[in-house]
Amino acid sequence: MRRLIWRAATLVEVRAETATARTLVLDVPGWPGHLAGQHLDVRLTADDGYSAQRSYSLAAPADGERIELTVELVDDGEVSPYLTEVIEVGDQVEVRGPVGGWFVWRPESRAPVLLVAGGSGIVPLMAMIRARRLAGSRTPFRLLYSLRDPGRRYYAAELRRPEPGLDITYLYTRTTPEDWPRKAGRVMLGDLAESGWPADFEPDCYVCGPTGFVEVAADLLLDLGHAPEHVRTERFGPSGG
């Protein structure tokens, strides 16, 4: 039987994504590999033995024994403040994974893909975009990325580069860039109708974000005729990290 063990992970690189989020690149000797969309558990142990653990989505396919997480600072969080503000290159944490065999995309899949991200829900979806690129897949992807304001965009430079077969629509809920055609506001039926796929294309839909966002977006997809079994969701609780 497969058993998930705790492995030592050493921070080798940090990339700032926004004022409150950063990507951590970790070296994990023995990492068994993972599918795009999976997550892992991170455990922090203090010098007196106190420990705390949380789950985080993997942001990219594994590069050998090197993995990436993107962590958003949660104000009253316990683990995320350490991962976003304290940890430095060379420091160690423990990780266990990969976990989750449902919210995953496999490069051999041929169905068109709709990714619907709310805020930091972009992370596992970005892993799918990167897995598609890495595999040289021509499966058409569309990403609808809802975020509060332009400053909250993760992976901004990477997503700005044109990529054949990947269409991206940004949707701002609070503040838009100047001269933005869509007024700021939450995701609506028209957004998913215009930027998604027609239901009769039978796309695989992946929706990830805060609970409220996922409830609304998944419901709208059903209203548009998508079959429930084609709509996979991952919800972040109100607290989390």
Partner: peptide, 14 residues
Amino acid sequence: MGIISRGFRGRRTE
């Protein structure tokens, strides 16, 4: 005890 994460203290909630 596992690996120590330098500088981690934790919230030690109720």
